[in-house]
Computed example of a mutant assay.
Amino acid sequence: MAELPALVVAAGWGLPTTTGSAVVDDSDRDRLLHGAGRDRLGGLLAAAVGDGSVVVSADLAAEVTATWHEQLAASVTVECLVPPVADLLHGAGVDWRLTKGPALAHLDYPDPSLRPFGDVDVLVRPGQWQVALDALAEGGWVRVSPELAPGFDERFGKGATLTNAVGLEVDAHRRLAAGRFGLRLDSEQLFEDVEWLELGGRQVPCLAARDRLLHACFHASLGGARRLRAFRDVAQLLLMTEADWEGAVTAAERASVQAVVASAVVETWRRLGLATEHPALDWARGVRVGAVDRRALRLFEEERSYAQQALTAVPDLLGRGAGRYLWALAVKPGHRAAAPAPPRTATHP
């Protein structure tokens, strides 16, 4: 189903776009509120209603404001998790970065209330993964799903979702994505620079703007829900923050993940109806994506299962652990004790 025009206008609010304005009648009320709630577009939609870019009835305007305020309350609750999480990780000597939600809201948007979020995302430096998980466990954070196999996270995995006693989430990342492209990008390079944000009296380390852009592109192209806000983040970093896109491209090309960045940039312009030109768009339009990368991207675009997305890494792992990787994906952790040992072949170094 095509995006509701009013949501596209809201997602592009404050950016140079061609979407103009939109009028919402009563028949689209539920679609508008559902979309704003699902994608946490409450702040941008409220701003668009406020300046007349999105025209709604007085009653619907009140409901939009209520949706935004609910999202703000949830964001404040989640943001309060950052200082104690920072204390746990710093106390264990872990090098980490805050990314996505709170980092983008405070560092890249003119008003953090425009960019609500629902969880805390942290990227952990390679080699410190288990130390980080142990530190979070001591603070009461429980992993939702077990590791697929001992050592799988560090060698192959994207990360883990952890929850506390009241069901709030911290997403700990070892890599920026599952599968082919996540394995190609060495997360170590994302720790070369840091940008600091003060939250709750703590100095919190965040990804540098160039790396926030890289992560935003990964989320837009490879995220579990490739919705309007993900593309707004890419546009925000390129057009408003003016992040070092050439540095992001250099890092992507070095890791052979330029297809991810190019796809995200081109689709950002298409989904948001951006009117302005940008050198990053010129670069993205000129990227030639190979057939294997194109097929892999399509699996993420179609939001296929985790297993299908993870299998995109297999061609890159042939001779470098493909057998053990496939074994871990095939055997459910709960059944692992009863399963026979994987065969020993040359692909199991």
Rank of each mutant, 00 (worst) to 15 (best):
M1D: 14
E3L: 05
P5A: 09
G12S: 10
G12T: 06
G14R: 06
T17Q: 05
T18Q: 11
G20H: 09
A22R: 00
V24Y: 02
V24R: 04
D25R: 09
R29D: 14
R29W: 12
D30R: 14
D30G: 03
R31Y: 05
L33T: 10
G35D: 08
R38M: 11
R40C: 14
L44M: 08
A47Y: 02
V49K: 03
G52H: 01
V54W: 01
V56P: 06
V56E: 00
A58S: 08
E63D: 12
T77E: 15
V82S: 03
P84D: 10
P84K: 10
V85E: 02
V85G: 01
D87Q: 03
D87G: 01
D87N: 00
D87C: 04
L88K: 07
A92V: 09
A92R: 10
G93S: 13
V94C: 12
W96H: 04
R97L: 05
T99H: 05
T99L: 15
G101V: 05
P102F: 04
A103P: 08
H106P: 05
Y109D: 14
P110V: 15
P110R: 14
D119T: 13
D119W: 02
D119A: 02
V120P: 04
L123M: 12
L123F: 05
G127W: 13
A132T: 10
G140Q: 03
W141D: 08
R143Y: 05
R143C: 15
V144N: 13
V144L: 11
E147I: 12
L148T: 02
E154W: 11
E154G: 15
G157E: 04
L162G: 12
L162C: 14
T163H: 03
V170H: 00
A172L: 15
H173G: 08
R174H: 13
A177W: 06
A177L: 08
D193L: 14
E198M: 02
G201K: 01
G201S: 07
R202T: 06
V204F: 02
R212K: 10
A216P: 00
A220E: 05
L222H: 08
G223R: 09
G223Q: 12
G224L: 11
R227H: 15
L228N: 08
A230L: 13
A230T: 12
F231K: 12
R232I: 01
D233G: 06
A235L: 00
Q236K: 00
M240Q: 14
E242F: 01
V249Y: 03
T250K: 10
T250S: 09
R254G: 15
Q258A: 13
R270G: 01
R270H: 12
L274R: 05
H278Y: 07
P279N: 13
W283P: 02
A284Q: 09
A284N: 10
R288F: 00
G290E: 02
A291G: 01
R294M: 00
A296C: 06
E302V: 02
E302S: 08
E303G: 07
S305V: 02
Q308G: 08
A310N: 09
L311F: 01
T312I: 04
A313N: 15
L317C: 06
L317E: 07
L318A: 12
G319H: 11
Y325R: 10
A330K: 00
V331K: 03
G334T: 05
G334F: 05
P340V: 07
P340R: 11
R344Q: 11
P349R: 13
